[in-house]
Amino acid sequence: MRTIVELRNVSIKGKGQYRLKNIHLNIESQERIALLGKSGAGKTTLIQVLNGTLVPDCGEAKWKGLEIHRLSQRKRQSIGTLWQDLRLIEELTVIQNINSGSLGRHNLIWAIGNLLGFIDNEHGLNCLSAVGLSNEKIHSSIMELSGGQKQRVAIARLLNQKSELLLADEPISNLDPVLVDDILNLFLSSGRYYSIDVPETAIVSLHRPDLIHNFSRVIGLKEGQIVFDQSTKNISKEDLKSIYQ
């Protein structure tokens, strides 16, 4: 195992108060990390620092030794994000959205071909079936889908990116209970799931402490600071209580 992400003393200032304060974090490959905290605790902010959307006001955030927000286009492919608001392109079809996950591996001509509907690729279709959506849906526009279906399209797009690190911001909040297990299984299965490569490392923000047994490590956030950071087996009830108070 090797360290892939390193946060040193990272702070993000918001209006008046810190959204993240003095975060130290090392993440090693193949870890499965659950990120816990109330809403507003800084989970989304942390994820956005990890994918380079937010630049730390002080401190350093590094991916394999390079500053995350300065990563080259090629390197950015290795960090995949499942956004809380999904950020799907509503006007496009399911398969076009899934294809857009692999834009990092293709050029502009391919991107335009995708827009015009000329691109069919098998990997995209496999990603779709991996998340349990039927092939009939591939040409539906996103606007016609339900919330849960959209979520699964977003996940399929993420899988199509073939990233090494998976950042998921509240991925299960819109899903019905049966699906929650499927999706978590998918995120946390190491290596391959059906015929799809699943990112080997995952950071998933949750607000349901009952699900942490699926993870190897749990980080608790409160008011922008890390309250605890331990392997799952060492988490005590008091730890969990402390972040929800």
């Binding site: 950015r76 956004w83 950020r87 799907l88 857009s100 834009l103 502009l108 991107a111 827009l115 990116q161």
Partner: peptide, 19 residues
């Protein structure tokens, strides 16, 4: 936001812009 999202996925800015 979707554009930012797919840019962060490693898409080239111009492809992301169009897509």
């Amino acid at each position: 936001r979707p554009m930012v999202a797919i840019t962060k996925n490693g898409a080239s800015p111009i492809s992301a812009f169009f897509t």
